[in-house]
Amino acid sequence: MTAPLHSRFLVHPSPVGEVLIVTTDEGVVTLHPLRGPLENELEGLSRVLRSTPDRADDDAVAAEVARQLDEYFAGERQEFDVPLDWRLVRGFTREALEAVREIPYGETAAYAEVAANAGSPRAARAVGTACATTPFSIVVPVHRVVRADGSIGEYGGHPEDKVFLLELERAASE
């Protein structure tokens, strides 16, 4: 029998709203802007993780992620150097998200390009699904993935956040 999963959470302010950071002993298991009440997010995560996250008051990984997010939003950080816990990601989704991590700061790539880089050139729609369902927002830059015509798409129903992140990166790289 395996030991119960120990997870911790931190809510951190950002220009795209409060960001929920959840860590395990493996690393960041999810990070995304809060879109509803914290209690609802934690309840859903508790079901998926089979563990109720504790407050991350003294969690070094959560504190480091928060610091790196602040640097990113200040235009001082171009990539994140934090361990990721991939337990919520399965199959091709992980390959797609790993390929997304290779898109350079301040640049974009089409879904089909990411699919090809992930080893499945015909899986552009699956890349879209991977980006839409990623547990890792911002630290895995799914905001850099765009449609073939260059339009940005929905970004989880918040295209204004995607525009903000892309403009932030473009401005910081000039």
Score class of each variant (00 low, 15 high):
Arg47Val: 14
Ala74Ser: 14
Pro15Tyr: 10
Arg35Trp: 08
Leu45Val: 12
His143Thr: 01
Phe73Lys: 00
Val140Cys: 12
Val163Leu: 14
Ser151Gly: 14
Gly44Asn: 10
Thr52Met: 14
Arg8Asp: 06
Pro135Trp: 00
Val82Ile: 08
Glu64Ala: 14
Asp25Leu: 10
Ala148Trp: 03
Asn40Gln: 13
Thr133Leu: 12
Glu26Thr: 13
Ser14Pro: 07
Arg90Val: 12
Glu41Trp: 07
Thr93Asn: 13
Ile103Met: 10
Leu69Thr: 01
Ala130Trp: 13
Glu26Cys: 12
Thr23Phe: 01
Pro53His: 04
Arg144Gln: 07
Arg47Phe: 13
Arg144Gly: 00
Arg122Gln: 15
Arg67Asn: 11
Arg144Ser: 00
Val29Ala: 07
Phe80Gln: 01
Ala62Asn: 05
Ser14Ile: 04
Leu38Tyr: 10
Val145Ala: 03
Leu165Met: 15
Gly106Tyr: 00
Ala112Leu: 10
Leu166Asp: 04
Phe9Thr: 01
Arg122Cys: 13
Arg101Ala: 14
Asp70Pro: 03
Pro37Cys: 06
Ile138His: 04
Ile138Cys: 07
Glu43Ile: 13
Ile138Gly: 05
Asp57Ile: 07
Ile152Met: 04
Ala66Trp: 00
Ala116Glu: 14
Leu69Ser: 02
His6Pro: 00
Pro4Gly: 06
Ala115Lys: 08
Ser137Ala: 09
Pro141Thr: 04
Tyr72His: 07
Glu98Gln: 11
Phe9Cys: 09
Pro53Leu: 03
Leu10Gln: 06
Pro83Ala: 10
Val82Cys: 12
Gly157Ala: 15
Phe92Glu: 08
Ser137Thr: 10
Asp161Met: 09
Phe80Thr: 02
Pro13Phe: 05
Val89Gln: 02
Val22Trp: 00
Arg87Gly: 00
Gln78Leu: 03
Ala62Thr: 04
